[in-house]
Nucleic acid binder design. Structure first.
Length: 426
RNA sequence: GGGGAGAUACUCAAGCGGCCAACGAGGACAGACUGUAAAUCUGUUGACUACGUCUUCGCAGGUUCGAAUCCUGCUCUCCCCA
């Protein structure tokens, strides 16, 4: 596999420094991507740089994932309109460990010369003192050079602390360090990282008299203009505790036709022939959503597991099937499987005694279940005919009783098509 | 330091003494259509013990039968001049 060719047809190259391709054909080359420990899990937006590393490794080169124990203390101003809140050291370390574990599942760490590696820039920054840094590194980069970066320019009006202004130097130094100590010659990242990366190659040129390269991937845009990787509930995380595999799968399954071709090229390892074939099949019958399903399957299996994927599909089928069929489907499931499938779906537990007396539908949603925030909202939804109990639409006279139990234990409540709530009765 | 403008619901943005729970737009949610889509059409979008009541228009007071609208003080934001 030739990396640049591969990334080109996948639409993953935004900017590339001249000479990068030659470098890659010349020798096994190390390249790195940095990850910011701003949260205790990676989200699907981070998957783009992860895939860059993956394709790099598949094409025979050595990927280095850098977790930003040091840079995370500063805050990258790129693409941010306001000063960042600093994280505590404990938080950073906690986040870092969590992200490291996630990164490990995507790359091969035991395949000889091009085994992947994870490094933490705190390891080298902790021993550097301010004066040395200013003398040895700062001397090579001018203020006007730093000021000309978009990440800085756009913040001159709204304000930017010296701390964030320094960021590009710190990240540039990372590249220099990796160049000198690990023979790393390429830095990759999102297109918003271009400025930071170039500062690194510049440092390497001036201080180490070396040549280093850069490659960035475009920021993912969705056709409808909304932000990629966000849903009502916020970010789509890789951590199943933060985003259930069901929701994760649903996110990909709901990709629009306008986006899904791009997504499948970026986020899956399918080769060109496979993807082209899928696209043809998809276009024959868009309604069957061939691409969305293939994408959802591949990525859910790789991020979570095949088992989680199957549960997600099972849950999807049941939750979106109509009427009696869905109820029968639910009934056929074992209690433990129901727990698995509905992991991440809002849940509540009602007592048997309450149910024996009958629970009116409004209080089931608000007072008892806490699924909706006010009785008014519940009544409104009922009036709009959007509330279902066990897949059947109900009105405001509905009262839940033992009759409604599925498998003697569960009641499935829904608002609209996509909002599911599971009630367990004990 | 001097002068001016402004703060309204998730966001933008009307209203400038009663007809205001507050026009409109966007967003969000739901219904129809559909592919769990897009586009489109429709409805909803402060709370409640609900044809009525209560709490909301930066904060605290005041004038008035009655205020988001007038007055006073405070806080914050923006602009212009020095």
């Amino acid at each position: 596999m030739e990396l640049i060719k591969e990334l080109t047809w996948r639409g993953m190259i935004h900017d590339i420094m001249p000479g990068t391709e030659e470098q890659l054909t010349k020798e096994i080359t190390s390249a790195y991507v940095g990850f910011d420990p701003t949260a205790d899990s990676l989200h699907i937006g981070n998957l783009v740089p992860v895939m860059l590393l993956k394709f790099l490794q598949l094409s025979g080169h050595k990927p280095i994932a850098l977790v930003g124990g040091a840079t995370g203390m500063i805050g990258d101003p790129s693409g941010k309109s306001a000063e960042r809140q600093l994280l505590s050291l404990e938080d950073i370390n906690f986040n870092l460990e969590a992200q490291k574990k996630q990164l490990e599942q995507f790359l091969d760490f035991d395949c000889g010369d091009n085994s992947a590696e994870i490094v933490n820039n705190y390891d080298w920054f902790k021993d550097i003192n301010l004066l040395d840094f200013i003398r040895d590194t700062g001397k090579h980069i001018t203020i006007s050079y730093m000021m000309s970066k978009d990440s800085v320019k756009s913040r001159l009006e709204s304000g930017m602390s010296f701390t964030e202004f320094t960021y590009q130097l710190i990240q540039g130094f990372d590249f220099l360090y990796l160049y000198e100590n690990k023979n790393c010659k390429i830095q990759m990242g999102g297109s918003d990282q271009w400025g930071n990366i170039v500062t690194g190659t510049e440092l390497i040129r001036r201080k180490a008299r070396g040549e280093a390269f850069a490659l960035t991937a475009p920021l993912i845009k969705k056709a409808d203009g909304t932000k990629f990787g966000k849903s009502e509930g916020g970010n789509i995380w890789l951590d199943p505790k933060k985003t259930s595999p069901y929701k994760f799968y649903q996110y990909w399954l709901n990709s629009s036709d306008a986006d899904v071709e791009n997504f499948i090229k970026i986020f899956t390892l399918f080769d060109k022939e496979t993807i082209d074939a899928l696209i043809i099949k998809h276009n024959e019958d868009k309604g069957s959503r061939v691409l969305q399903k293939a994408l959802g399957k591949d990525i859910t299996c790789r991020v979570h597991s095949e088992e989680e994927y199957e549960n997600a599909v099972k849950a999807s089928e049941i939750l979106f099937k109509k009427g009696q069929e869905a109820v029968d489907g639910l009934k056929s499931l074992s209690a433990s499987l129901i727990q698995d499938i509905f992991e991440g779906v809002p849940q509540a537990t009602f007592s048997k005694a309450d149910l024996a007396n009958g629970i009116d539908i409004v209080s089931a949603f608000v007072e008892k279940g806490k699924f909706l925030s006010s009785n008014g909202e519940a009544r409104r939804e009922l009036k709009q005919n959007s509330i279902s109990v066990n897949k059947a639409k109900v009105n405001d006279t509905c009262v839940l009783t033992e009759e409604d139990l599925i498998g003697g234990k569960y009641i499935l409540l829904q608002k609209g098509k996509k909002n599911n709530y599971l009630v367990t009765v004990e």
